[in-house]
């Protein structure tokens, strides 16, 4: 299958990344090549092999239910590019 500019736009939308119109073509070309290569996976006969999410044989790692954290707002919010009165700010999110 070929990756065209429309496909790139669709994925970019899902990933929330903007692209300049003039970058799109080159990007789509590289991407087509890469996907073409990756698609060899779909041809591999994996039989009844199960997907492997974790390599470690580790399970049931939990923390106890204890509240251990102190309020550290002023320190943390310093990292924000924009803030006001202890709140993070975004352009208005209006429910349609």
């Amino acid at each position: 299958m070929g990756i065209d500019i429309e496909t790139i736009k669709k994925i970019a939308n899902l990933a929330a990344i903007s692209f300049e119109e003039n970058e799109l073509e080159g990007f789509a070309r590289d991407f087509d090549l890469i996907i073409g290569y990756m698609e060899q996976l779909s041809k591999i006969d994996t039989g009844d092999i199960k997907p492997m999410e974790h390599v470690l044989p580790v399970q049931n790692v939990f923390r106890e239910d204890e509240d251990t954290n102190q309020n550290n707002r002023d320190e943390l919010i310093k990292c924000a590019p924009v803030s006001e009165n202890g709140c993070y700010i975004v352009p208005s999110v209006v429910e349609s």
């Binding site: 899902l14 779909s42 591999i44 994996t46 092999i49 199960k50």
Partner: peptide, 20 residues
């Protein structure tokens, strides 16, 4: 993404086990 999840992502996880 839906449509490719099984043939790419999931397949890659299976190949991962084969390599393991």
């Amino acid at each position: 993404s839906s449509g490719y999840h099984d043939e790419l992502y999931k397949k890659a996880l299976k190949v991962r086990r084969m390599i393991f």
